[in-house]
């Protein structure tokens, strides 16, 4: 009798239902239909001067053609006291995938706060910049999909600006635009800040041309430059607009300003 009940399901007949769920991983590649990133648009920009650094970003957040909100800041104070980061001298701007941007901001802020707690002094921008690079690089196989710009005042009191790619490559620069309208703003900055393609009048032609030498710009000029860059970007890029948030870092602290931009 026992031989009749082999325990095996009838050949070709309906099997046990749970037999139909796979018990081993399928061979070959599996397709994920979930894509963990999105682009929230917007643009950021940073310019460093002799004794200040300015960071700026528009406040529009988008999802495709939709506007999520007209006010989502991309600039964050890092370190400093308490949740408002009072007394901070470092600003991080992030553009790209906003959720990653927020996560990155919180990681860096916590690290900088722990640094102060453990060492009893504020972190320098140079150290903070290197640490940020490491945070990004450590997640290079599942990157924070953001372009970060870090601004502050260095140990000599000069304006410091660092820009990053999503996997942590970084360098110190005079100016940098990032995000949706970077390709619109950056050439403008090259021309107006680093005086690219500008020559001394009457210096001749061809090889005789004398390139104009770039020098640190005064604060007022930089603020105007930033505002012009963004008002122009708003005209030509649909993901940029609504408001312009600026943070000006000097040895005395961080000044924050907000200027409305076109909402169309």
């Amino acid at each position: 009798m026992a031989s009749v009940f082999t325990g095996a399901p009838p050949q070709g007949g309906p099997g046990y239902s749970f037999k139909q769920t796979p018990t081993v991983a399928l061979s070959g590649e599996r397709q994920h239909s979930f894509y963990p990133y999105t682009d929230n648009g917007g643009s950021t920009l940073g310019i460093s001067g002799a004794d200040f650094t300015i960071l700026a970003g528009d406040t529009r957040s988008t999802h495709g053609y939709n506007i999520n909100t007209r006010y989502a800041p991309k600039l964050f104070k890092i370190g400093g006291e308490g949740p408002e980061n009072k007394g901070s001298r470092i600003v991080l701007s992030v553009v790209g995938f906003a959720a990653d941007g927020d996560a990155l901001k919180e990681r860096l802020d916590t690290i900088v706060k722990m640094y102060k707690y453990q060492h009893g002094k504020s972190i320098t921008v140079a150290a903070c910049a290197q640490r940020l690079s490491h945070i990004l690089y450590n997640k290079r196989f599942f990157p924070y999909y953001v372009h970060a710009i870090l601004g502050g005042i260095d140990e000599d009191g000069k304006g410091a600006l660092y820009s990053y790619d999503p996997v942590g490559s970084y360098e110190r620069e005079q100016c940098r635009a990032a995000g949706a309208a970077a390709s619109l703003i950056m050439p403008f900055l090259d021309n107006q800040v680093n005086l690219k393609n500008q020559y001394e009048p009457g210096s001749g032609t061809g090889h005789d041309l004398q390139a104009k030498l770039a020098q640190p710009l005064p604060r007022k000029d930089v603020e105007d430059l930033v505002r012009d860059a963004f008002t122009s970007a708003v005209e030509r890029h649909i993901e940029v607009g609504d408001g312009l948030q600026m943070m000006i870092i000097t040895k005395d602290g961080i000044e924050e300003t907000f200027t409305p931009l076109k909402k169309d």
Binding site: Y37, T38, S61, N68, T69, A72, F97, A98, A99, A103
Partner: peptide, 8 residues
């Protein structure tokens, strides 16, 4: 679902 946050 992506963890994106905003307020309006």
């Amino acid at each position: 679902l992506l963890g994106t946050t905003f307020s309006s």
